[in-house]
Design a protein around this nucleic acid. Structure first.
Lengths: 137, 137
DNA sequence: TAAAGACCTTGAGTTAACTTTATGGTTGAA
DNA sequence: TTCAACCATAAAGTTAACTCAAGGTCTTTA
């Protein structure tokens, strides 16, 4: 089973431009070409693009993802580096989740605050802090 | 209690430049000035900067945060808009947390994969997919 | 057979959020 | 009194990650 660039774009919810950009940046070095240069994607290429999406979501830059892919190409001599990389990303994502939880708590506090204020028709319902003449909490 | 811009920068782990940038963008319109133009921050200004950090962490742009601050200045007539905004941000953050959890699961899978491979000294320990001649899982 | 619609490359443009540079004013200790 | 250490503005520069435009080739379809 093979796919055109637009098939892949639809499947992964990326634009054609983005996929070509990733190719240019060296993220998908194993995509084959027809005689006239058209890219032909295999399932394994789609798997790789999925991994790239995951690494991006974990906060990695394109440049760092490229490094990882180069390590993959280098074979078993880079296993430790790749392991360390994923350990680092794991802890990075765990940190992000904790931060996001704190953020959510603050936002939920605001939701409650505004729900009460909307029902009352005024922010004066709250004992509050003022900044200038403007209510901020 | 008042603070200089560098005090605030230290306290909130921002640079002086970033704080001035936020001021230029209209995010902190209530900071006072001395006769010669030096900014003087009150505790309420620091509270507001903390709220700004939280909104940024939830994925809001500077432009949208500015809109929120304008709504605050407009008083009770914007209560519903502000409530809706926080409901929207809450659901945005909840979505982000779910996505991050999926990402973490994939990364943990990779950690296990590489731990086994490092111990074995080779990726051949895994039944695997190959892309070109390169192992990607 | 010609127009539509894929695909390609190179290179320039965009956007957000800073970040730096250039230039200059104020203040307080040595 | 000078000089370091603050503060200020305006405007240009940076970076990442796209995104678009121009100009060209190939293939399919009316």
């Amino acid at each position: 089973m093979t796919y055109s660039i637009s098939d892949v774009a639809k499947k992964l919810n990326l634009t054609i431009h983005t996929i070509r950009y990733y190719d240019r940046e060296g993220l998908i070095p194993f995509v084959e070409r027809t005689a006239n240069g058209t890219r032909v994607f295999k399932d394994s290429d789609i798997d790789l693009l999925n991994i790239i999406q995951c690494l991006k979501a974990s906060g990695m830059t394109i440049k760092d993802i490229k490094t990882f892919i180069e390590w993959c190409s280098d074979g078993d001599s880079t296993l430790q580096q790749r392991y360390d990389l994923f350990l680092k990303q794991r802890s990075a994502v765990e940190t992000q989740m904790k931060e996001l939880k704190k953020t959510l708590d603050v936002i939920e506090h605001k939701c409650n605050y505004y729900q009460v204020a909307v029902e009352a028709g005024t922010e004066d319902i709250h004992q509050h802090k003022k900044i200038g003449n403007t209510v901020f909490e």
